[in-house]
Amino acid sequence: MPGPGRSQAAQAPGASGSSITWDPEHTPELAALVELSVSSIIEAGLFARGLAASGAALCIVVRTSTAYRRPLAREIAVALKRRCDIGDETALIMETVLHEALMNAILHGNLGLNSEARQGFGMLDRFQSLIDHRLKLPQFSNKPLVIGATWTSRFIDLSVRDDGTGYSAKPRALPDESRASGRGLAIIQALAAAVSFKEGGRLIEMRIAR
């Protein structure tokens, strides 16, 4: 299938040269995602990277525009909940941290927007306009996001990698309590068992206790 999403999928870490397996029976939501992907340029698949031999790995590559429009965090959490046999509370934590990481990767990573634009109700309009504008530009909307998950009997490790310019990732405390933005990373750190930033802040890895 032609298109930028496809070419990026081929470059996903661990994807090259590995066999791709797919189990739609146990991941109907992601299966539906794949069906949609054919027409909307979203790439999804399981890939082999060590743990994948036992089926314990998942990698999804999506374009920024697709990631912004789809409830990906929920879909992935639902699929992982079924595959990993985890409880509702853990699934909600996964959905929450994944959602926060994805929004950071989309807005501040691939779309290159500054959260300062969100201070004040009036500024939300401008922030939304900036998002809509950049999503119309291929150089932003086609940038890939790579979402990964591996799991063991004790942990689920989630990762989100964007294609932005990166940032200086430092441990976050909650921001000034009344500040309307800037608390996404602090929430991830409060909910995850461990968080690390790599590749100049473009890759976030989050460990969730099962």
Binding site: T96, H99, E100, M103, R118, G120, F121, L124, S178, R179, A180, S181, R183, G184, I187
Partner: peptide, 14 residues
Amino acid sequence: DSAGLGMLLLLREE
């Protein structure tokens, strides 16, 4: 999400 929390804070501010 954190943006939703932010919106609650903006309502409070207003």
